[in-house]
């Protein structure tokens, strides 16, 4: 059901700009209005979510410990998997953000005949790593359309990405990798029945959107073609707040733009916020120094107490008269 509904929404998102393109109207809304609105929602929504997390109290150290804690000097400690210092926590975060270390530790159990086998499962890690890194390269490459003059590093990135010079325009390796990785991530959810059982609308919808964006982009570059100069004029117009809609953008380009806009507007309210959230998970970004440093809950209010010593002092005369032994003898 979730699969069907996300697919139908996706189909509508593709159909609307296509129909508008055929009818020859709505270009101002599709290419200027919606992108501006989506980008504003993206920025404001993302800031709102991150500020909300930043305001959440994290009074104590709650890191997940994935190795030996630092204790006695002759016991070897896991400085990255159970960091005791800020530097170690930064190293752990770098491994997590850049290399997805926690996914690398993924494992699963399967029945092989009568045997119950428990072992590593690296495919998800590999697919996720391939997808995220190629997406980063693709986003950075798109700067050539938004910035004039084009920065040398963006041109260099494009050159490396099209290293093998296959065809014209040259095939970008990141395009191949991102499509393969997305196909794997999608098929993985459909193929494995146990996984499919726990998949929800947001899982399918994000993958459909990303697949649609990648496919429409690839189609424009290698298939239907688009006038890149016109695309850049539109992009620069959007970035400098003087929007123009040049001719020759074709039918596929508005689909690409609408899908990207949908992704941007959907981003702050979806699981895609793990982009910001990965930096703010207290189970990863805190040093495990609870046994070296005392962390006092900062909003502990002063509790009114009445100790036994104070009580004894208050009733000293009565206690003495009753002959009850006292803890503290008064030297008088």
């Amino acid at each position: 059901m979730d699969l069907l509904s996300s697919f139908l929404i996706m189909a509508a998102l593709v159909a609307v700009p296509l129909l508008a393109g055929v009818a020859g109207g709505g270009q101002g809304v599709l290419l200027v209005g919606i992108p501006y609105a989506a980008f504003a929602i993206f920025i404001v929504g993302l800031c709102w979510r991150v500020v909300g997390w930043a305001r959440s109290p994290v009074p104590f150290r709650i890191p997940t410990t994935c190795g030996q804690q630092k204790s006695l000097p002759w016991i070897k400690s896991a400085t990255l998997d159970n960091p005791s210092t800020g530097t170690g926590a930064v190293g752990r975060m770098a491994l997590e953000v850049l290399l997805f270390r926690s996914l690398f530790r993924n494992n699963r159990a399967e029945m092989y005949g009568q045997r119950y086998v428990f072992g590593d499962s690296k495919w998800l890690w590999l697919g996720a790593l391939a997808f995220h890194w190629s997406l980063l390269v693709i986003v950075l490459r798109h700067l050539r359309l938004f910035v004039q003059p084009v920065p040398a590093c963006v041109l260099a990135l494009g050159k490396v990405d099209s290293f093998f010079q296959i065809g014209a325009p040259a095939l970008y390796l990141s395009n191949v990798i991102v499509l393969c990785a997305l196909m794997y991530l999608m098929l993985r959810r459909l193929w494995d029945l146990r996984l499919r059982y726990i998949c929800q609308f947001s899982d399918y919808f994000a993958l459909f959107l990303l697949l649609g964006i990648a496919l429409s982009g690839v189609l424009m570059r290698y298939g239907t073609r688009v006038d890149v100069v016109a695309v850049k004029q539109l992009a620069i117009g959007l970035a400098t707040f003087q929007p123009v809609i040049p001719a020759g953008l074709g039918l596929v380009f508005p689909v690409h733009v609408l899908l990207v806009s949908t992704l941007a507007a959907y981003f702050p309210f979806s699981k895609l916020m793990h982009m910001g959230g990965v930096f703010l998970s207290p189970t990863r970004n805190l040093a495990n120094n609870s046994r070296m440093k005392r962390h006092v809950n900062p909003w502990n209010y002063p509790v009114k107490t009445h100790t036994y010593a104070e009580w004894e002092e208050e009733f000293r005369d009565k206690l003495t008269m009753a002959g009850i032994p006292l803890d503290e003898a008064k030297n008088d």
């Binding site: 700067l143 938004f146 910035v147 004039q148 003059p149 004029q233 117009g237 970035a239 400098t240």
Partner: peptide, 12 residues
């Protein structure tokens, strides 16, 4: 792209 566009006075 917005800041760069302002700095470089990019036109369409």
């Amino acid at each position: 792209p917005v800041w760069q566009g302002i700095a470089a006075q990019s036109s369409t």
